[in-house]
Design a protein around this nucleic acid. Sequence first.
DNA 1: CTGTTAGCGCATTCAA
DNA 2: TTGAATGCGCTAACAG
Lengths: 368, 368
Amino acid sequence: MVTSVGQDGQSDGSQRAVTLLDLARAAGVSRTTASNAFNRPDQLSPKLRARVLEIADKMGYAGPNPMARMLRTGRAGSIGVVFGKSLTYGFTDPTSIAFLKGVASVCEKEGASLLILPETGEAQVGNAIQGAAVDGFIVYCMHYLTAVNDAVAARQLPSVAVSAPETMPMSTIDIDDRSAAREAAAHLIGLGHRRFGVLALDVLGDGYDGPLRIDQMAKLECTPSVDRYRGYRDALAAAGLQDTDLQAFEVSGNSEDQARKAAFKLLSQRPRPTAILAMSDRLAVGALLAATDLGLDVPGDLSVVGFDDIPLAKAVTPALTTVHQPLEEKGAAAARLVFHPPKGRPRHLILPTELVVRDSTGLAPDAP
Amino acid sequence: MVTSVGQDGQSDGSQRAVTLLDLARAAGVSRTTASNAFNRPDQLSPKLRARVLEIADKMGYAGPNPMARMLRTGRAGSIGVVFGKSLTYGFTDPTSIAFLKGVASVCEKEGASLLILPETGEAQVGNAIQGAAVDGFIVYCMHYLTAVNDAVAARQLPSVAVSAPETMPMSTIDIDDRSAAREAAAHLIGLGHRRFGVLALDVLGDGYDGPLRIDQMAKLECTPSVDRYRGYRDALAAAGLQDTDLQAFEVSGNSEDQARKAAFKLLSQRPRPTAILAMSDRLAVGALLAATDLGLDVPGDLSVVGFDDIPLAKAVTPALTTVHQPLEEKGAAAARLVFHPPKGRPRHLILPTELVVRDSTGLAPDAP
DNA sequence: CTGTTAGCGCATTCAA
DNA sequence: TTGAATGCGCTAACAG
């Protein structure tokens, strides 16, 4: 009664795959019973179950077809993560890696998988989002992209966006970039610094390197870059300093090399800034390299403050003074929000930050 | 003729979702036409398409249900990556991060998504694998796990395993760990070193820290740890040295902290080893820390060789001499093999490695 | 360019 | 404990 068994699928890929029905027939049971053997062990005798499973194995039946099962149950067993930038970027930037790690830890607990979506860019933004078999989304964009958020919102699934405006019909999670940045700048001001260089994450995510495009900033709803810049200025204003004491460069791609060049320019000006406010630790490391290039001592001649507190921050010499943000917890919290969506209105979480003073900041060299 | 429109799904989650048929009716077209509006723009007039899409938008229809589409087409549009260890581990170890980055770069090119699977451990290994809606698998296990590979093989999908025995019915990708390790050890021997400490990746992946369990090694089909150890011994043998000149400790979890402790023990022995062979750069960094703890100069008093050549290797002081392996390319090659599976027999790729000499190795202090 | 037809493979009622 | 029937939502033939 058993149909031909063996390396069926192996020897010839064109053969129709074994289905639950085939298995049921081969085992001489009904489809339900075969299904239960996989999904509800308590619904049939252990003996029968063992027999069915063994026959399944013989037939090369690996278990219920996941796609059919999903369609039937309406559950995908996975959540999607969308990066605004390239897929690869998610595995390049220490910040997003830590975030993903947090997401992964919760997925693991929930027994869910993690689907990382490619953004093929411009025209067809949303294609991958539209076609993803997931139970919810996390949107992690350095640069707020309406198209991405809209595509996610259209799916009507539990979703969380990181650093997105609260006007979106989804939960958000963020830190208070502005006051965190203010604190960083205030720390330097307290040390007697009066002339600052800023290394900014690119405001538009368009690969631009050069002086900060302040005029463009007004257009933006929400990017960490803009908020952090405002925070820096808040601190200056509170100390009665002028905006002109703040020279800012955008650095594309959060790259150490580009930051090094930008910092070099910043530090070649006269009078030279005595402190650099970097919007990420990677940019700060670039500043450290530039200081070395110029023979400047850190923190003797120059102070540097980073942002994020990635592992590298304390590994580097001198260890970076930086704004710690709970990157991993950010990912974990986002994932939790997807798995257990709040009833009613979306939630908007703000996670705490903390200035961590290490060895890269000191008294201003020209302080009284 | 248009059915009720508005915040349907928004206001009440329990409402039945809009389907392609609903859309077709609302737009006064057939299902095919509605489907084509999304999948085959060239099959209907742009005008009609625009109208259908607009109505879809109004109805809150985000596009064809991904699960149904997958079932119908038989394609998932994503590939799965399985880690033998915890899901989180994949985002912790620099080695696997680089690997994932390589995988992601190819996925991006192919317009596919990347599904990262949790391994809930022991008993139910394979559950996630069995239920994953993917078009192929990549297995990345530090420790060769039959259960995982078997579960993947059972799915009969294009699959690639990293560092797995070639007896598996799937393609594999690897480096020549043994000869790479031999080269590393030979480098030290050439510098006059005669007494070595080895910092080994844990052989069984069971969290053990302590002297290398040589007796257990025989049981293992294939782990980088075992092969590298053999390579070290090959070099010693070729130089006429005894195995007793090689003191080895296993370090669990590829952790710098644990490596530091293990290296401390290694370096506290008399006569003290003049060189440390570390099976990963992280372990090598641990050795560097231990050297600092003991007031040993590297490479003056002690030489250290790593493995992998992760970014940290050249950032650390002194920069690590290490075995470079193409981690990202490993991921990319694996992904390519999944997207374009070889006809006929599985392929078994061996990627090249290269010893990179930097500043952590020098002449043996007791050399003639 | 449009419409009709027929499953994709499964989980789940419900009745036996 | 088991079996028969139903449809999840969609796409791909094919005929108009």
